[in-house]
Amino acid sequence: MSFSQASENARASVSQEAAVLQVCDLRVYYDTPLGAVRAVDGVSFEVYQGEVLGLVGESGCGKTTAAMAVLRLVQPPGRIVGGQVFLNGVELTRLSEGELRRIRWRELALIPQGAMNSLNPVMKVRDQIADAIETHEGKQPARELKERILQLLATVGLPARVYNMYPHELSGGMKQRVCIAMAIALNPPLIIADEPTSALDVVVQRVVGETLLRVKEQLGVSIILIGHDMGLQAQLANRVAVMYAGHLVELAPVLAIFSAPLHPYTQLLIEAIPTIKQRKPLKLTEGLTHDLRNPPPGCIFHLRCPHAMDVCRSEKPPLREVRPGHFLACYLHA
């Protein structure tokens, strides 16, 4: 009880003043022979110092694409069509490729989807972490480097013997924690974690999730946590941004998202979470997401929305702050 109380207070007290990352009106389209797929269509959000921002939505809603666009790692046929991204005041969208390469990892680290499979199978853990450090900081004295790597492994809760092991000797959860150790190796202010626990068993998922929280508390880094598991978001995030079909529809503190969601899509998402607390009738939802090449006029969600009004079919609701810190793109709560 006291623990959860404390963590609740800690979650509420994330400072509003210091935004590490600002994303303004980001647009990413994928070109196809039948027209451009609008994967991210005018998304704006901020990430504050020392918070975990959850980015959620169903598959294909553009959450990974948005995060990759922040890193400017969108692969063709995708292209960033518009928008600005500021990291600590520096506009990433204007940097040259060379300048950007120096910033990546040092300022903005990525834990990619299925990160544990991205480790090099023929390199020992120590060499992979050393590689990340030395690429950015130049040759390091061997002794200091070793101490630093051991310190990193301790931070993510791994025993020192992992230092000399190969990836195949580690379990999935341990590999994932090696990836977290690599992500924090250069002390970046922001980490983007794309489904960091998706292929793991629940118990291991909890270990990795708690490792992320511990890293956040010890180092004060900000984390963008991409995922579709709402239970995990409830456990880890300070604020949650909900995406639907390339649009940000709601962004609010985690408590508000779960106890009083305002957007009909968020409500649907929350109701669809299966729980082990009570057995309840299944909540069925009809309808599919429209063709992303051809978005409907008006609100992006009106084709599936149970509360759609006339205005929703003709005009697109802007993202507005309806309560302090609670942003919403919906006419219901105007």
């Binding site: 623990f3 963590s7 580690l170 959860g173 118990v203 291991v204 708690e210 490792t211 511990r214 456990q235």
Partner: peptide, 26 residues
């Protein structure tokens, strides 16, 4: 342990920590 580890979709009910970090899953 399995049931305790299922993330509860309620931010007010967080995992009790410490306990699990000590488990060497290897």
């Amino acid at each position: 342990l399995l049931i305790e580890s299922i993330p509860v979709p309620d931010p007010r009910e967080t995992w009790g920590r410490e306990l699990v970090l000590t488990i060497d899953d290897e």
